[in-house]
Amino acid sequence: MLQLQPNTLELSSKVSLDTPLDQVLARAKSENRAALIAYIPAGFPSHEGCKKVIAAFAAGGVDAIEIGFPYSDPVMDGPTIQAAAVQSLSQGTGAKEVFESLKCATDLGVAAVVMTYWNPIERYGVEKFAESIAANGGSGVITPDLTVEESREWIKATDHSKINRIYVVAPSTSDARLPKVTGSCGGFIYAASLMGVTGTRSSVSSSAADLVARIRRSSDTPVSVGLGVSTREHAKSVAAYADGVIVGSAFINVLLEAPDEESGLRAVKELAEQLAMGVREGR
């Protein structure tokens, strides 16, 4: 597998695709700013509540939405997203709810992707999963625990359904390995800002800028930075060097801490507005 040169692979997927995600990142670039990408797990705080959060994202100026597929064993996630996943799963969230949430976002005209650990995809059927993403207007899938070496079937399925494959790279990813992973990415490359799990932190790790610079040496695919980004100031600092800014746990915290759903949704919209300003202030 992966006999192709990384560059060839990259070209083959990039030339043929023009997903809403590709378009929104191109638009942000033309406006000389970073895109704001917001994460919410399907079924959180409830199935209907998730749809309201998606609407609040859209109203708050979010450029693209990641719908999380809650999973029983989320090894890349810290306590906040774990808690959200537990709450969502206890309400019976599954593939059906994930695709409904995805459709909810794309119906609002917002570019949207699904973020999921690999096993739910394999269980659903790899080809069928990619087809369902496309059928619901989704642009692609972020797969945090799928390595390029295990991606043969996934590459075929995503090429067939014309959706973006988004892999996560880390500060520990070597220069030798980076092009192999980024060469298979479309939409954007997900750069983990630090060595660790998801969750809010007081500042964005300095390793993020280094990683983005290393990625750019071998790839011209847009790069979005996630992990530990939670405030307007963070967004501003990341937007200085990245094409996209990803925020997840901060939104979930806002919802977990709100006394009721209405104020939670209001706080989500306010945070989105703050972050949307941040991504426009970085350059």
Partner: peptide, 8 residues
């Protein structure tokens, strides 16, 4: 099947 962070 692991996060890229662990590959190294």
């Amino acid at each position: 099947f692991v996060p890229e962070a662990l590959i190294g």
